[in-house]
Simulated scan of single mutants.
Amino acid sequence: MKQLTNPDILPLRTIDNIAQSPVLVVAPHPDDETLGCGGAIALLRSLNCHVRVMVMSDGTLSHPRSRKYPADQLKALRESETIEALSLLGIESKNIDFLGLPDGSISTYDSHKTNAIIACCRQLTEIVPQTIFLPWRYDPHPDHRGSWNLINTALSCLSLEPRIIEYPIWDWDPEQCKSIPDSVQIDCWRLDINQVVELKTLAIQAYRSQTTDLIDDDPEGFRLSPQMLANFALPWEVYIEVKG
């Protein structure tokens, strides 16, 4: 997305522009909510906005060959990291929902897709969010696009019209970033998170399985690079709203 090549020129807004409670934050994997929206979450909670977080996948493909952390233990580890990170940002564990969909297969997991949509409908009906933070619909990662599609499908089944705010993750990687259709009109802006950026950084560090060598027995295991992490340690976050 070309806006990310020079984000400093994007308009800068304050949390007052989006402080409509309740709020739902949707994360394709455990850590996306903190990377993309950690500052917004902390600021919303500082205003006593009710924030719920829905984590779509179990995150078990980050280190698929680890013997120290087989899938069930890795799933538990990543959930515990999410709970720790979000507690720093002001979210209690009771306000975190783990859907547990297979990592890497959100967009193709047909056998339980209906159940996933039903689960999303149930959560949306319970929360009745005024605002939903979703992964960017054109994110290079298929799980991110799949998460957007699941929530969008669920919303189409309900009479809810929340404000949809989308956040980029892998578009920050110039090698993966893709162009968007010319017909898509977007409003791209930055949220000022300067007062909570240090708190967000601490929350990101809670994801030790993704940022350190905690899991050291899978040579192909995933780890966020310093270059990628630098994009999420800025005093602002980038958000996208699609017009029309």
Rank of each mutant, 00 (worst) to 15 (best):
171 D>F: 10
50 H>M: 08
119 A>D: 15
195 Q>T: 15
44 L>P: 02
241 E>M: 06
139 D>L: 03
210 Q>I: 04
216 D>A: 15
146 G>S: 04
105 S>D: 01
139 D>P: 04
211 T>P: 05
98 F>I: 12
226 P>W: 13
197 V>K: 09
160 L>W: 01
66 S>K: 03
97 D>C: 10
178 K>S: 12
126 E>W: 01
221 G>H: 09
170 W>K: 06
57 S>G: 07
49 C>T: 02
46 S>T: 03
103 D>T: 01
122 R>I: 11
244 G>M: 00
226 P>A: 10
131 T>P: 06
77 L>W: 06
230 A>D: 15
48 N>S: 14
194 N>S: 15
84 E>Q: 12
25 V>L: 09
203 A>G: 12
231 N>K: 14
230 A>C: 07
114 T>N: 15
222 F>M: 05
64 P>L: 11
193 I>M: 08
66 S>Q: 04
20 Q>F: 15
138 Y>F: 15
243 K>D: 05
197 V>Q: 15
194 N>R: 14
184 V>G: 03
187 D>H: 13
233 A>K: 14
93 S>M: 08
138 Y>P: 11
53 V>S: 08
204 I>F: 08
101 L>I: 11
211 T>Y: 08
210 Q>P: 02
73 Q>K: 15
228 M>C: 05
68 K>S: 05
19 A>W: 09
123 Q>W: 03
105 S>P: 00
118 I>Q: 08
151 I>E: 07
9 I>T: 15
64 P>N: 03
225 S>P: 02
125 T>Y: 02
183 S>P: 01
83 I>A: 00
235 P>N: 11
76 A>H: 06
2 K>D: 11
81 E>D: 13
31 D>T: 04
99 L>T: 04
225 S>E: 10
201 T>L: 12
93 S>P: 10
204 I>T: 07
9 I>F: 10
10 L>G: 09
220 E>S: 12
29 H>M: 11
7 P>W: 10
3 Q>L: 10
109 Y>A: 05
90 G>F: 02
92 E>N: 15
120 C>L: 06
192 D>C: 14
14 T>D: 13
119 A>T: 06
153 T>Q: 11
239 Y>Q: 00
134 L>M: 11
242 V>S: 09
68 K>W: 05
15 I>S: 07
107 S>R: 12
120 C>Q: 00
136 W>K: 04
5 T>C: 05
87 S>N: 13
181 P>R: 02
220 E>C: 09
169 I>F: 03
59 G>F: 01
14 T>H: 13
226 P>E: 04
150 L>P: 08
189 W>M: 01
157 C>M: 00
14 T>L: 08
132 I>H: 12
17 N>W: 14
82 T>P: 08
90 G>W: 04
5 T>K: 14
54 M>C: 13
37 C>M: 14
78 R>V: 04
45 R>K: 15
238 V>C: 05
166 E>Q: 09
158 L>W: 00
27 A>T: 10
215 I>C: 04
234 L>T: 11
212 T>H: 11
102 P>I: 07
75 K>H: 11
117 I>K: 10
110 D>I: 06
149 N>P: 03
233 A>Y: 01
148 W>F: 13
7 P>C: 09
186 I>R: 12
116 A>T: 08
21 S>W: 13
221 G>W: 02
223 R>T: 13
6 N>H: 13
223 R>P: 02
226 P>S: 12
